[in-house]
Structure formats: C-alpha cells, structure tokens
Design a binder for these strands. Sequence first.
DNA 1: TTCTGTGCAAATCTTTTGCATGGCA
DNA 2: TGCCATGCAAAAGATTTGCACAGAA
Lengths: 136, 136
Amino acid sequence: MSNIDLLKSNSLKATPQRLCVLDILEDCGHATLDDIQTITREKFPTLSISTIYRNLNEMIEKGIVSEIKITRKQHFEISKEKHLHLYCKECGKLEDFDFKTESFTKEIEKLANCKVLNDVVNLEIICEDCLKKHNK
Amino acid sequence: MSNIDLLKSNSLKATPQRLCVLDILEDCGHATLDDIQTITREKFPTLSISTIYRNLNEMIEKGIVSEIKITRKQHFEISKEKHLHLYCKECGKLEDFDFKTESFTKEIEKLANCKVLNDVVNLEIICEDCLKKHNK
DNA sequence: TTCTGTGCAAATCTTTTGCATGGCA
DNA sequence: TGCCATGCAAAAGATTTGCACAGAA
C-alpha cells in the first residue's frame, strides 16, 4: 500500500507535508524529530514544526506511525510487523531486527493472564561491531 | 542494603532529599516526576524541582535508579533484578512482573551476535481486570 | 462553500544552569 | 575551611494552542 493510500484509508488527506514525513520514515527506518525537521526543511523550507508535531500525533493516534521509546530522544517509525529494536548503547545505532516475538509474549500472556499488545520489543545492546572493538 | 548505604557506596551523600526520593520509589515501585514532586512536597515543602531532577539524573548515572520508558510520562524505579514491566494501556496501571528474561535475550544474542544489556523488558498489555470487563 | 490542514506566533510545559547560601566533615 | 548539595530564579528546550489564511472536495 502506498503512503497516499495509507493516509486516505485512515481519513487523513495526503498532503505533501504528511507524505514527506512518511517518506523520511520509510527511507531512514526510524527518525527523531530533529531528523524529520532537518530533512523536511530541505524540501519544504516553510514547513513548520507545529505541523510536524500535529501530523505525527495524528498518525500515531491512527496507528500509522509508532513511537520508539528507548533513547532519551524518542524515535518514530511507520508501524510494521512484530520485530525488535536493538539500540547499541555504545555507538548509538538503532536497528530493526526481524524476530517473531510471539513465543515470548504468549508465555507472558499465560503467566500473567493478560493480553500483550506489543508488536515491538526494545532492547539495549552492545552491537557486533562494538564488541569486536573491545576484543582488539 | 539500606538506602543510606546505597547512596554512600556510590559516593553520594545521604541527604534527606535523596532519601525521600528513594523512599517514594521503594514504596510505589515506580513513580513519575509528578508523583515524586507531589509526595516530596508534603515532607519538604521547599524541596525544589531542580533538586529532584539533579538527583534523579545523578542516581541514574550511578545506576541506582532506572528510567522506565514506556508511557509518555517516564517513570523511575530503584534498579533491580531482571524483570518485566507490564503497562495496561486501558487502565494505565504499570506493574512489575517477575520473569527471568534470560532465555529470550540469550536467543537474541545468538542470532544478532550482540550483547543484550536489558535487565528489564517493557510490554504494553491489557491486564486481567480489564479483560474481564470486556467479557461482561 | 465548507472542511481540513498549514504557518506563524504566542503560550505552556519540561528540563537544565548559574549562583549565592547553608550544612556537614 | 572546604566541599558538596540545595533553593531560587532565569534560561533554554520541547510541545501545544489559537487564529487567520490557503487549498482541495
């Protein structure tokens, strides 16, 4: 589904500003507010920060976009299938990792008698590259 | 270990203000900044918000206190053993759940060639009570 | 025309800093 | 005395809101 359809199917108009934000999230995987502001400014010098906030909040409410609460600066991404976020505390890299979390969450559901909503689990790590540096 | 010793062993003076914050975290399990501010005010009407921020940041740096990044308002807790946070999106309850996350994190480490640092994994859920309400 | 979305500026929070004061080793 | 910690006020940042205008249905 194109980003245009994604917006329309959530009764949001496909404005250039919204598409621009979605394109950035698609290209970068995840972006902070600063990232979004910097990149959008190149295309739309007049695009206002309040529009970014407003649109992100709307798209989060509709479930099109998700917030990633792992670093102090929050990141945003286009909502997608169950996966992991691996954030390297050493080099600051934030990556998606394709991993079905079901078997983990199903176990919790059984033990705690609850329904787990997360499609995403966030983990702080030291990444492969940084581990290699340690061993040198 | 008492909170006094906890502070001293991290070369922080055990001031009444710091102890008050730690007591709150101990009593509540987790508290937001608002919680901390409201409760400390009862005991120390003059305790300033900047002192709370400064102390929390220091204690986070030393690893005595951890931030919980799950809701929009961040929560704080006294650092402890590996466990889960279950946050009910419906009623807003945030609870600890005793669950060893090792088998999950070990699997990720193998697959992604990384070291997982988390002692804590955050999950958004619908809790047992709220599920019951649905079925009525 | 009627809505919805945008930009700008102002208002409101949140968080951090600078500095003078106070208390404890 | 010499630190370290605090309180207060100001500064800096982040986020939201009000309003008038612009553009698409």
